[in-house]
Amino acid sequence: MHSKRWLRNIQVIVTLGLIVWLSWQANWTDLGHILGHAQWNWIFLGTLFVLVSHWINIFRWKLFIPPSGVSFVLLLRYYGAGIFSNNFLPTGIGGDGVRAVLLSRQASLSSSLLSVGSDRILGLVGLLSFVVPGFVFGLPPGITAYFAKFFSSLPYSLTIGLILIGLILGLITSWWTRFLWFTPLSQSLKQFSTDIQPHSFILGYSFALLSALCLVFTHMCILIAFDQGSLPAAAIWLVVMGSLSMLIPISINGLGVMESVYVLVLVNYGIQTAAALSVALVIRTLIIGFGLLGGLLALHLGIRGNQVPPQEQMRDIHKP
């Protein structure tokens, strides 16, 4: 409890500090002018891409749910409760636990945890896959010049490469252990592998790529809405860096961190700070808006659903 209190205090301080820094950097007159002259038809199109991305995510999650009679509508509400929790609970990972607990009404708790964990890992792998086209398009110009000097030495390149590989493996491992630390791995994974077809992972990875691609299109639309051009390279790096920044628990739900990343990336493309902050604010508004929509979808959950008796859940958790 003491460590959690310290973490929360740090998150509050970092969040407030970043908000103050962004406010100091922004020219509020320019910001108001840019937002007032935005092309809202492009913002609407970007919103539709976000909706499609969430829809794909639900289909991806469904691939890893053992046959249990859960309907798509009920799964939609569970997913809505998850994204609402992600935005309005203290940490950005709360929604995964909420999804698993709600799904355990129709399936065993271990199967629910494994389904959410598999879905989350494939989503992360799909997101990181866009690093490849990002490097093909090139890093932001200002960052490229810096890294060109830094990576000119082979030992530095190898060191950074190993650090990146370790970071990716660490993220994947952390997601598995977050959900599986109290489940009997041998029994749960054996049953999970029996219920889930191998091709589900290939299809799930394809869905993860499509979902991330929709987010890239969203960012391209928002950039066009503020007369900055489509900038596909910038859109890719915003999606990758912005999404990863949300996983770093140094602020409240990534508030301030994501916006700072957006400003730093877009400024390196020659975009003014006010325009960069406008893009970040619109994306944050979409995140919060869909979180609220998810909460509305979850309002009717109550205690509906054929719940698995608590005795069965406990028996499943403590199976030898």
Rank of each mutant, 00 (worst) to 15 (best):
K4V: 00
R5W: 05
R8I: 10
Q11Y: 05
V12G: 05
T15K: 14
L18H: 07
V20H: 14
D30V: 08
G32F: 02
L35H: 08
G36H: 01
H37M: 13
Q39A: 14
W40H: 09
W40E: 02
I43E: 03
T47A: 09
V50Q: 14
V52T: 06
S53Y: 00
W55A: 06
N57H: 02
N57T: 00
I58V: 07
W61G: 03
F64K: 03
I65A: 11
S71A: 10
V73F: 12
L76F: 13
R77L: 15
Y78K: 10
G80F: 09
I83T: 05
L89Y: 07
P90H: 09
I93R: 06
I93P: 08
V98E: 11
V98Q: 12
R99G: 11
A100D: 05
R105E: 12
A107T: 15
L109P: 09
S110L: 07
S111Y: 08
S112C: 09
S115M: 09
S115Q: 01
G117K: 01
S118Q: 02
D119P: 05
V125P: 04
G126Q: 01
L127M: 12
S129H: 07
V136H: 10
V136S: 12
V136K: 14
F137D: 10
L139C: 10
L139M: 13
P140T: 03
P141C: 03
T144A: 07
A145Y: 04
Y146G: 00
F147M: 07
F147R: 01
F147Y: 15
K149F: 08
F150G: 02
L154P: 12
L154S: 03
Y156V: 14
S157W: 11
T159P: 06
L162N: 11
L164I: 14
I168E: 01
G170D: 03
G170H: 05
T173G: 13
S174G: 15
S174K: 03
W176D: 01
T177M: 05
F179I: 02
L180G: 13
F182Y: 10
F182M: 15
L185G: 04
Q191C: 05
T194P: 07
D195M: 01
I196A: 09
I196S: 06
P198I: 13
S200F: 13
L209M: 04
V216I: 03
F217T: 02
H219F: 10
M220E: 13
M220W: 11
I222P: 09
I224K: 06
G229Q: 07
A233N: 15
I236S: 05
V239F: 06
V239I: 09
V240M: 04
G242T: 04
G242M: 02
S245R: 15
L247P: 04
G256F: 01
S260W: 06
V261A: 06
V265F: 01
V267Q: 15
V267R: 15
Y269H: 15
Y269D: 11
I271G: 08
S278G: 07
L281M: 02
I288D: 00
G291W: 02
L293N: 04
L296S: 11
L296R: 09
L299C: 15
L301H: 08
R304C: 12
Q311A: 12
R315Y: 10
K319N: 14
